[in-house]
């Protein structure tokens, strides 16, 4: 198609879609109303399960199967990235050059790193009580580790990041969720049933399986993001085509 024809087709389609969607939105219940059948049910159930953060109760208890699927999507996406960004036979690995970092940036990164790590772990551990949980905390933990790359350099990051170990943790996190679900079956209830004692409302030890599932997801997400960024870093810094290396060597010879 010519560019013009493509734009016409696109415009017609977008116009139709927008008209349909706008007409539908006009028929929606008004914003900020008081009728929330699902929300009311979810809050009642969350309180009955002694989970202070209703969102966590929905994610890890009432609709825990969705979260298994979502965790698996991230798991599959990272695995897919590992496969797609692998080093192919016509590529070679070179050691990246050490980079010089302004001292101020270095000081900042080294100071913030433990703080960010702690916040991440806190967010994972308090998922059943306050906003956050395995997904959010896991990403924060993974991001915190990468402050080393920003503050020092890639080699410093590599020292604290044996990718193999994180891949193991990735698998363990995903597997732990599946197995925790099966524990519900072994306890005589349904798959992913919250069979543990519910504990005291609004304390760390509450919510039954919710904190455990949060921990599993936190582990999976943190290591998955580390593995994911490791592939991107390797592609950007280390992996070069054979041709480039040959050219460089030739130049050095000259």
């Amino acid at each position: 198609m010519t560019r013009r024809a493509r734009l016409w087709v696109l415009a017609a389609g977008l116009l139709g879609t927008a008209a349909l969607f706008a007409a539908a939105c006009l028929r929606m219940p008004p914003f900020g109303g008081t009728w929330h059948p699902y929300g009311d049910r979810a809050v009642a159930a969350a309180i009955a399960q002694r989970t202070a953060n209703t969102v966590s109760s929905v994610n890890f208890d009432q609709r825990a199967l969705d979260t298994l699927g979502e965790e698996s999507i991230l798991f599959a996406a990272v695995l897919g990235t590992v496969v797609l960004l692998r080093r192919t036979p016509d590529e070679r690995r070179v050691a990246p050059q050490p980079a010089s970092v302004p001292p101020a940036l270095r000081r900042y990164a080294i100071t913030v790193l433990p703080l960010a790590l702690l916040i991440g772990l806190y967010v994972v551990a308090h998922g059943q009580l306050s906003p956050g949980g395995g997904f959010q905390g896991g990403v924060v933990v993974a991001t915190a580790l990468h402050l080393l790359y920003i503050g020092v350099d890639h080699r410093a990051l590599e020292r604290v990041r044996p990718v193999g170990l994180y891949e193991l943790a990735d698998g363990v996190g995903e597997g732990a969720y599946v197995v925790l679900g099966a524990a519900g079956l072994l306890a005589g209830s349904a798959y992913l049933a919250n069979t543990l004692p519910h504990g005291t409302f609004n304390t760390l030890a509450s919510g039954g399986t919710v904190p455990l599932l949060n921990a599993a997801v936190g582990m999976e997400v943190a290591s998955a993001v580390v593995v994911l960024l490791a592939r991107f870093l390797a592609q950007a810094l280390e992996i070069v085509d054979e041709k480039t290396v040959d050219e460089k060597e030739e130049k050095e010879k000259e």
Partner: peptide
């Protein structure tokens, strides 16, 4: 909860991935 996810992913991981891709 959603805001926290957005902040963690949108402001750190996604830009880093894009930057590394652009570099490559």
């Amino acid at each position: 909860d959603v805001a926290l996810s957005q902040l963690a992913v949108g402001s750190a991981v996604t830009p880093l991935m894009i930057l590394l891709t652009v570099r490559r």
